[in-house]
């Protein structure tokens, strides 16, 4: 909530500076993910990006989310992606054709998206301010929220995860069901 004594947008406070630096790292590494010519580098830059984002979460006092981010994204998903790169026998070195011919249209659309979104959020939230209070996103508070209020979606989600697992197995194994 906006408080009465709301500091101006500039100069940024300490946490904000940290956040912005982490944000720049995340954005830069994300840009490298989508532009690098090496597949494996892309995956590694993704690690950097996710890590920086985890830092951002920490600054925003969402500690638990930050750790989950590190554990699942950096720990699991990127590994999965690397396995994918490996299994599809992608070239490890530079490859010239990682971008499709659609690149310039994509760039235009991307820039336009950025323009629209940024202008919208800036115009919408340039006055929004909240002081950070540590402990808001601690494991305890979050855990009690998940297992009280959100327990049903949580359970549903676990079923979803299970079925996704089974689906992945079914899809990746050639000797199960499928084509005649």
């Amino acid at each position: 909530m906006t408080s009465q004594a709301q500091p101006g947008l500039w100069p940024p406070s300490g946490p904000e500076i940290v956040f912005l630096l982490l944000g720049v790292v995340a954005l830069g590494s994300a840009l490298l993910v989508v532009t690098t010519r090496r597949l494996v580098h892309a995956a590694l830059w993704l690690v950097v990006c996710f890590g920086a984002l985890a830092g951002c979460y920490l600054v925003l006092t969402a500690e638990f989310v930050a750790w989950v981010q590190v554990l699942i994204y950096v720990g699991a998903i990127v590994v999965l992606l690397l396995f994918g790169i490996m299994l599809t026998r992608a070239p490890i070195g530079r490859s010239a054709d990682l971008d499709s011919g659609n690149r310039w249209a994509a760039a235009v659309v991307g820039v336009a998206t950025a323009g629209v979104l940024v202008s919208v959020v800036v115009s919408g939230f340039h006055t929004a301010y909240t002081p950070l209070e540590p402990g808001q996103g601690a494991a305890g508070t979050l855990g009690s929220s998940v297992f009280r209020t959100w327990v049903l979606p949580f359970e549903v989600l676990s079923v979803l995860l299970l079925s996704a697992l089974i689906g992945a197995i079914a899809l990746s194994r050639t000797d199960i069901g499928g084509r005649e």
Partner: peptide, 15 residues
């Protein structure tokens, strides 16, 4: 058949 082109169009239209 190029799904990327479709999505490009989709996003552009959305914008």
């Amino acid at each position: 058949g190029n799904a990327q082109l479709y999505v490009t169009g989709l996003v552009a239209g959305l914008l």
